[in-house]
Nucleic acid binder design. Structure first.
Lengths: 213, 213
DNA sequence: TAGATTGTTAATCGATTAACAATC
DNA sequence: TAGATTGTTAATCGATTAACAATC
């Protein structure tokens, strides 16, 4: 077992998928599972699964395997899904509205408490009961409600100024759908980039290289 | 220089980001760039950049560096962004509509030619001039227009049946926003999964592990 | 030519896999 | 107890980094 910041990005990147599979197993009524059985379902090696889990402690039992519910709960704890986290959304365009409406934030401990857009035309609209405010409301709102995470669904050109403002307001974590590179200016911030076009280009690459065969 | 299917996933995963940076450099009027300068901007090592590029051939010139426009064009070619690819979208909910409206498909060689939803309430609506059809229209439409890629923005429960249908219709590539695991049943298909909740859980992990410090 | 920077080989590092003793 | 399966160490594999000769 290692301390949290020694864990490699490769291992951390696999945790959500483990969690997802364990939820499904639990939903289908599976009580116990061996690393070998799990490896077949997930397309990994049993070795890797046991190594990954043992970064965080011994969750299994020799001769038995792992208890699905217990292991799922451990994954949730490790991922911090039970820790309450206040989030705001910046940018109520197509993508922002879809993210607000679609994501099950509560299941991951996030509470969406505010939505902001530079366009006052959205003012008064509500998503999931949360009213859309303008960017002018951002500073007073954050001073009072103290969110720690911001979801950035705004055009790249507007991102630098908003991020500067948010950092000053104590927001230090970003779920970033814009292409603005936050880490360059703020290396200490927690950033998860979602570059949908990168994913689409990767698919383009795969398609191109199967057509050749 | 290696042949396409020897290239490791790690290298391929970095190509879209190279392409993105090169586009920006070109937009700001930069004509040439050295691996060293690029490494500073991207937060990689110069060695890695040169190794990556040399998987596909020698695009640089000793003593000079790389020509930005030429290198960008090479990246586009390697990623297959110039290859025309017909795509359809399945699922016109919040996410599906956002993806249809937001993504610049044409810039990556994709042509969105059809949108489908199981809910007939969407029938008649248009996105970017493309009418939304029902799932019943899927087979006749594909038989005529022969798309090769499908964007899956539908609930997981509906995914297996639709994927079965699409595979029979010759669609063998998937940009998959659902959580249905296509590769298990169809290991030969080209699949790019976009698991937005996985990304959000990773951010949750990061937040949890900075709070401790 | 001298300086710069690539392309490429060799060295290092880290991640994955294999093996097996511990133990339920 | 015997069988199963973990936790963990050792071996392998692959990716990243360093070094440098080639060359523009």
């Amino acid at each position: 077992m290692k301390t949290a910041n020694e864990i490699s990005a490769s291992v951390i990147g696999r945790l959500p998928r483990y969690y997802r599979f364990l939820c499904e197993l639990q939903n289908t009524g599976t009580v116990r599972i061996s690393s070998n059985e799990l490896s077949k379902r997930m397309g990994l090696t049993a070795s890797q699964i046991r190594q990954d889990f043992n970064c965080f402690g011994g969750f299994g039992q020799q001769g038995y395997g792992y208890n699905v519910e217990q292991l799922k709960n451990e994954m949730a704890r490790i991922l911090g899904l039970n820790t309450p986290k206040k989030a705001i959304l910046i940018g109520a365009g197509n993508l922002g509205r879809a993210v607000a409406a679609q994501m099950r934030f509560e299941e991951m401990g996030f509470q969406l408490i505010g939505i902001f857009d530079s366009d006052t035309a959205f003012c008064g609209m509500k998503i999931k009961g949360i009213p859309i405010l303008t960017d002018n409301d951002l500073t007073p709102f954050c001073s009072v409600h103290r969110p720690e995470m911001a979801i950035l669904c705004l055009p790249q050109a507007q991102a630098p100024a908003i991020v500067d403002e948010l950092i000053l307001l104590g927001v230090d974590s970003f779920w970033n759908f814009s292409h603005y590179d936050i880490h360059t200016k703020y290396p200490g911030a927690n950033v998860e980039n979602v570059h949908m076009s990168d994913s689409l280009m990767t698919l383009s690459y795969k398609i191109k290289n199967t057509e050749i065969r």
